[in-house]
């Protein structure tokens, strides 16, 4: 309209800082469409509040650590890295790659707690060693059947809100070795 005024309010909210992070700069393209949330298998189960941040979902897990690495250090780890978010993103943000980048960055910055660090180290050595993986699997199945109290207790956070699964007699590998012709 003739003679009218237009005012533009700049809201930084960490954007200028994220611009300086080469690995995460791409996240500034976000248009907040919510496609990554609708497709995310984690978000669809857990809902928005579990992200304890204004922007939830996969994109929120990238934006939040930029604002406060200590407070939001858990978010990039709450992902299966399945890549569904990157696949649907209309502005083609590499969301799952940035989640993986954030995990490394947070670990480098010492923002990951000791328990998680140790658990990941153990997991890494088990998963990279097939012999150990198989015998641990066998022990786990045996324990679930014979001394369920060892895992079905309050020390195990997975037991808190759910029943532990029934342990099968054999693993898929054992079944396959027996049945392949």
């Amino acid at each position: 309209m003739q003679g009218a005024q237009l005012h533009i309010v700049l809201v930084d909210n960490g954007r200028s800082q994220q611009l300086g992070r080469a690995a995460f700069r791409n996240s500034l393209k976000c248009i907040r469409c919510g496609a990554c949330m609708n497709t995310c298998p984690v978000y669809r189960r857990s809902g928005g509040h579990s992200y304890h941040n204004a922007v939830a979902g996969p994109i929120g897990a990238i934006l939040a650590p930029n604002l406060d690495m200590s407070k939001y250090s858990d978010l990039p780890f709450a992902s299966t890295l399945c890549g569904s978010c990157s696949n649907v993103c209309p502005v083609k943000i590499n969301i799952h790659e940035q989640l993986y980048e954030w995990r490394q960055e947070l670990t480098r910055q010492g923002k990951v707690d000791f328990g998680k660090k140790m658990a990941l180290k153990v997991m890494s050595s088990v998963l990279s060693n097939p012999g150990v993986y198989r015998s641990m699997g066998k022990m786990g199945r045996w324990a679930l059947r014979n001394i369920p109290g060892m895992v079905n207790n309050s020390m195990n956070p997975w037991f808190k809100q759910r029943e532990m699964p029934e342990a099968p007699q054999e693993s898929f590998r054992e079944w396959y070795l027996k049945n392949r012709k």
Binding site: L10, D12, S16, Q17, L19, G20, A22, R25
Partner: peptide
């Protein structure tokens, strides 16, 4: 003011590999 601060930061953090 905050406007100058934001703009200066944006200028300083420009991508180098564009």
């Amino acid at each position: 003011n905050s406007r100058d601060q934001i703009l200066a930061k944006v200028r300083a953090n420009q991508p180098q590999d564009e």
